[in-house]
Design a protein around this nucleic acid. Structure first.
Lengths: 225, 225
DNA sequence: TGACTTTTTATACGGACGTTCAGATAGTTT
DNA sequence: AAACTATCTGAACGTCCGTATAAAAAGTCA
């Protein structure tokens, strides 16, 4: 381990070596994101990612590490942004007061629907990847770290509105809400097939139906029996 | 193609060659069912299935064909039974009359929850496998053939109750209901993590919460605006 | 310039993959 | 008994996998 000088050298700001490395790394992560989202972890090969990123094989390992590390990096990369959108929406509700179940459902679902509907194909891929891993208990360790903290904040708010509901009932309806939300991204082809109409371009087209469904569902399930 | 004699030979009734072959084939299909349910198609190897079935490698191909054919066989094997349970429940409702949304939700969900809660680990595995493939548009071709016909029957009944709802809205709420149902099997670990309580042994423990959620959701989403 | 670091290339390794098949074994039929 | 068929075994095939690495290329800095 070489001794480092006191002054750390700054990367070339415009077009230097480090900037090039970062750009390549982004290409690799973007390609991995698209591949994992489309086919799932096991079905994707490092060579596919390399081809998709238009780099040679070794570059994927150089910038992304092992396949598992690469997967974890892709998962975590955009989490803070999505969590912030939800937290901001929740904070706005708390500042306003008079929170309803519908408010909470909308605050939780809309950020996801929006990233899933953005023009940016990388955010779309990320939304699809989330739909894959959140609906599979095999990845719960990662989901717990990435998404459960914010989910707990929303659960706490639901419990303020329905203080008599059991902890398990509230956790269940939150999970059902999440599953419904994810299915809008993961099952759009089936909706199209069952309705006979072509699939909507944007996940946001389902927003009002989805929010109605989850709001009515939570209120019905948590109503005193 | 050899000419076959008029009289087809019957298999040995008690313990013959053909009976042994069928038993081995069942062991292979059962093992494949457990493996695919636990890890998904791509993550499972033929050698894993052979080990799980306690047969040698070639036997899997001999009885199951290629990996893709084997997967399709496992998927289709129990579909008729599950479809019949749902159809019977629907027919009973139609004979009685006065069908409510709650009746339809219960008739659709309960057969699945029951097979997911049976003692038989093979039925449990099958329920888990369904949760995997139905929530992934990659497999929609197979889902369409196996499950969409019965789903359409339920959609038709929902439309009798809510004749003004659009085809797309009804297809959407049916899909959301299915996603909620599947998440009870696929996301039980997350529910436990979020609630702080251990996961229930049986999927049927969530039945009333799930039926309430889906009933309230459908009624809210299809209510006239 | 030349020493130094980061990035990229090209290639190779050992292993596991899905599939195939000749031959051994076991059960049935004549 | 012999002839025949279904089942099973064990081994092999060619291919692709994830990962590692030496050497080349590119960029930085003294």
């Amino acid at each position: 381990m070489p001794q480092t000088p006191d002054h750390k050298e700054l990367p070339g700001t415009t077009d230097g070596r480090l900037a090039r490395g970062e750009a390549t790394k982004d290409r690799v992560l973007d390609a991995a994101e698209r591949c994992f989202a489309a086919h799932g972890f096991a079905a994707v090969t490092i060579r596919q990612i390399a081809r998709e990123a238009e780099v040679t094989l070794g570059v994927v390992s150089f910038h992304g590490g092992s396949k598992e590390v690469l997967f974890g990096t892709v998962l975590a990369r955009r989490t803070a942004t999505l969590n912030a959108l939800r937290t901001d929406a929740l904070n706005a509700l708390q500042a306003r007061g008079g929170i309803t179940i519908r408010d909470l459902v909308d605050a939780y679902l809309t950020p996801y629907l929006e990233i899933a509907s953005r023009g940016d194909p990388q955010w779309r891929a990320y939304a699809q990847l989330i739909a894959r891993i959140v609906s599979d208990d095999q990845y719960y360790m990662q989901v717990r770290d990435l998404y459960d903290p914010v989910a707990r904040d929303f659960i706490a708010e639901i419990r303020c509105i329905h203080p008599d509901a059991s902890a398990k009932a509230v956790a269940t309806v939150l999970t059902l809400t999440v599953a419904s939300m994810l299915s809008i991204v993961a099952s759009r082809v089936r909706i199209a097939g069952l309705s006979g109409e072509p699939a909507s371009e944007s996940a946001l087209d389902y927003r009002s139906t989805l929010v109605d469904f989850c709001t009515g569902g939570i209120e019905q399930a948590l109503a005193a029996h």
